[in-house]
Design a protein around this nucleic acid. Structure first.
Length: 565
RNA sequence: CGGGGCGUAGCGCAGCCUGGUUAGCGCGCUUGCUUUGGGAGCAAGAAGUCGUGAGUUCGAAUCUCACCGCCCCGACCA
């Protein structure tokens, strides 16, 4: 490809819009162009990378026997009504009517559609198991798009679905898929982690997520740098420290006029936030519940819901709380709440002499102690971890870091097949629901993720497997322009994806652009060529240089590509 | 949805507070000449509904109001 004719514009300056490294570099290197919040075009250079990632995915999917297909982007609402997700998804699901007034959605994911397809296509165990996948645009009307293609509303996704006869068979495929994902991410040169995940709106029985650690990430994880424990913040187990030592002092009322928040309280009484307690009311299908966590902690509502075995759980309104305890918000405490269920976080049970609200306006209690001043109905781990919590595996101090999710795999079970009535006949002639799994990779997001882990001050450093071009030919003087064209033609003939920088710009510009674009090998024809009749090769990643005769250029680049990262 | 910021040429910005000729600067773009080993120089050019709408005013990029869009933090979400 001739650079002068290629639809790419590079830029020295970063766009004001872009905050994170990958977003800035993608804009500067001319990979993408924004049309609206979270809606992007991929320019030829960006599309080349997408195509290469897609072909890696295709190879790894085919390796485990998955079959590629293509499902509709626009889906009839009927299927979503059957699965229940017409109601359970909020505004993220884009809904519209066609000219006849029929409801449709823009596909944010394809469990419904694929289940319907398999239901009609497969009636017998003889065709099972089956794994299918596609690479397609998805649309999710996110409340807030961010980080360029890290969280876009329209994005490219690889989604795979498996249909099995039994849970055992499904687990085998789940493991195969996990390995395939590991190969895909390794080939993209990603330093990823595998963590347990919640099943969220997909439903299902268990799930794993592949993530990379980076400051541009939007998810938070807990990591132990000693033993390598990594977990999503909401999944991380909070272990309880040893019981605090010391005397239990007598409870005393203190006047705290107008002091409502934990911050104000700890400031006013000159105590640490960890010495205070928060009392929060939740409305649940099991009634109104009082929940107690330390002042410096936050309630993990999902953990709480599981502990209570509740279906519904939401924060009680201020009015309801006020009515229940007859006191102002900000002065709520556990002492004397006998008629309410009281769920207490483990950490609270280990502490002594806490400050809490007195359930009276402008009054707090000091020296409140669990099992003396209040009795929990239930105790458990119901909080999010905080910086410095002990690692649940080795006890070392943990850190909280940011991460990007690359992909997630779910064991779904029978959820979708039962709601959509998708069955097959087993060996005994008995009708059974398909056991399903679904597996996603954010393909467009992978571009950003790879850049987050492969760049330097000069620009992107593409791993060879997904580089848009393997080599860029640069003539640094008009005198070597013809020879450069010759080298370009040789490389092209040898089947090497090569960009020929035939622009009439300075050598410096060509070098800078080659670096920004992240092309693994620069093939340079300049002074050295004129003096020694040698072509110079410079690697992007390590900056290593070597000289080679003009006849050996294709052969040498092939060798270098083979050995490169 | 809450908080903060922004909207002026393709991109990055100045001008706005304190209203007043033809709205500037840098990058990029076009033409010519000289250049070409790490983002060249000179010269000449093209390019703007100042986000939209209303209002105040003799006069609005500038002041007022409403709306739209975008970015960041959070909520939300995978």
């Amino acid at each position: 490809m001739r650079f002068s004719q290629y639809l790419v514009t590079t830029s020295k300056e970063a766009s004001r819009e872009a905050e994170c490294v990958s977003h800035q570099l993608m804009l500067r290197a001319g990979l993408i162009m924004k049309f609206a919040a979270g809606i992007y075009s991929y320019l030829p250079m960006g599309y080349r990378v997408l195509a290469r990632i897609t072909s890696i995915i295709e190879e790894e999917m085919e390796r485990i026997g998955a079959q590629r297909l293509l499902l509709p982007f626009v889906q009839p609402a009927e299927l979503w009504k059957k699965s229940g997700r017409w109601e359970s998804w909020g505004e993220e699901l884009v809904r519209f009517k066609d000219r006849k007034g029929a409801d449709f959605v823009l596909g944010p994911t394809h469990e419904e559609v694929i289940t319907q397809l398999i239901k009609q296509q497969i009636n017998s165990y003889k065709k099972l198991p089956v794994i299918v996948y596609q690479v397609q645009a998805k649309f999710r009307d996110e409340p807030r798009a961010r980080g360029g293609v890290i969280r876009a509303r329209e994005f490219l996704m690889k989604d795979a679905y498996s249909f099995c006869q039994s849970k055992e068979e499904a687990k085998v495929i789940y493991e195969k898929m996990k390995e395939a994902y590991q190969r895909v991410f390794s080939r993209c040169l990603l330093d990823y982690r595998l963590v347990e995940a919640d099943t969220g709106t997909m439903g299902g029985e268990f799930s794993h997520e592949f993530i990379i650690l980076t400051n541009s990430g939007e998810d938070r994880i807990v990591e132990c740098e000693r033993c390598g424990y990594v977990a999503k913040l909401e999944r991380a187990v909070c272990i309880t420290d040893e019981a605090e030592k010391g005397e239990r002092k007598p409870v005393k009322e203190v006047s705290t006029p107008g002091i409502r928040t934990i911050k104000e309280l700890s400031h006013f009484l000159a105590c640490q936030e960890r010495k205070t307690l928060k009392t929060i009311f939740y409305e649940t299908d099991k009634g109104l519940i009082a929940v107690l966590v330390r002042g410096d902690h936050y309630v993990n509502e999902e953990k709480l819901r599981l502990l209570l075995k509740a279906k519904e759980l939401k924060l009680a309104s201020d009015n309801l709380t006020r009515k229940e305890i007859g006191a102002e918000i900000g002065f709520v405490g556990p002492v004397g709440l006998d008629r309410n269920k009281l769920v207490v976080d483990n950490t609270v049970m280990q502490g002594k002499n806490f400050v809490t609200g007195a359930n009276k306006k402008d009054v707090h209690l000091i020296n409140v102690n669990p099992n003396r001043d209040f009795e929990p109905t239930l105790t458990g781990d119901i909080r999010f971890p905080v910086l410095g919590d002990s690692c649940p595996l080795c006890g070392n101090e943990t850190k909280i870091k940011r991460a990007i999710e690359l992909g997630q795999i779910f064991h779904l079970g029978e959820g979708y097949s039962s709601s959509l009535g998708a069955t097959f006949l087993d060996k005994m002639g008995k009708e059974k629901y398909f056991i399903m799994g679904c597996y996603g990779i954010g393909v467009s997001r992978l571009l950003a993720a790879v850049i987050e882990q492969n760049y330097d001050k000069d620009g992107i450093i593409w791993p060879k497997e997904i580089a848009p071009f393997q080599a860029v030919v640069i003539a640094t003087s008009p005198d070597t322009a013809r020879a450069a064209e010759g080298a370009y033609l040789r490389l092209k003939k040898a089947g090497i994806d090569t960009l020929w920088d035939d622009r009439d710009v300075s050598a410096g510009t060509k070098f800078s652009d080659a670096d920004l674009l992240g092309i693994p090998f620069k093939v340079i024809l300049g002074n050295i060529f004129l003096k020694e009749d040698k072509i110079e090769i410079k690697t992007r990643r390590r900056g290593e240089k070597e000289k080679v005769g003009r006849n050996g250029i294709s052969q040498r680049i092939k060798e270098l590509v083979k050995d490169a990262e």
